[in-house]
């Protein structure tokens, strides 16, 4: 493959880097407690929390680094950080 002239790149390639492998703690989402406020989606530095048809958060563990911000900022304590088992 030819290199991008002048060290250029087209979008999409960063997704090949699966940062989920960095994770030590894993956010577990407790649907019963979730108020669908979307705070976790807003604060996630990876932008990797989506939502399902009902508006419940769906994390993409391929990219979640386990920083814990979502759990910390969740106003209804609906996210728990659990030690990753590898």
């Amino acid at each position: 493959m030819a290199l991008g002239l002048g060290c250029t790149a087209r979008p999409g390639k960063s997704r090949e880097n699966k940062t989920g492998s960095w994770r030590v703690f894993r956010p577990e989402f407790i649907a019963d407690k979730c108020t669908k406020c979307r705070m976790c989606m807003i604060v996630c530095p990876e932008g990797c929390i989506g939502e399902d048809a009902e508006g419940l958060p769906v994390p993409d563990y391929d990219y979640c680094k386990g920083c814990g911000l979502c759990a910390e900022e969740c106003p209804s304590e609906a996210i728990e950080m659990k030690k990753e088992e590898k």
């Binding site: 979008p11 999409g12 390639k13 960063s14 997704r15 090949e16 880097n17 699966k18 940062t19 960095w22 989606m41 807003i42 604060v43 530095p45 990876e46 932008g47 990797c48 989506g50 939502e51 993409d60 391929d62 990219y63 680094k65 386990g66 920083c67 814990g68 911000l69």
Partner: peptide, 25 residues
């Protein structure tokens, strides 16, 4: 994803910022 979908796509996952990085946010 709904509202923030476009935004997530504009600055994509897979970047190598530290976990919890404010600059990435």
């Amino acid at each position: 994803m709904k509202g923030d979908e476009a935004a997530c796509v504009l600055f994509d996952a897979g970047h190598r910022a530290c976990g919890g990085c404010a600059a990435a946010m």
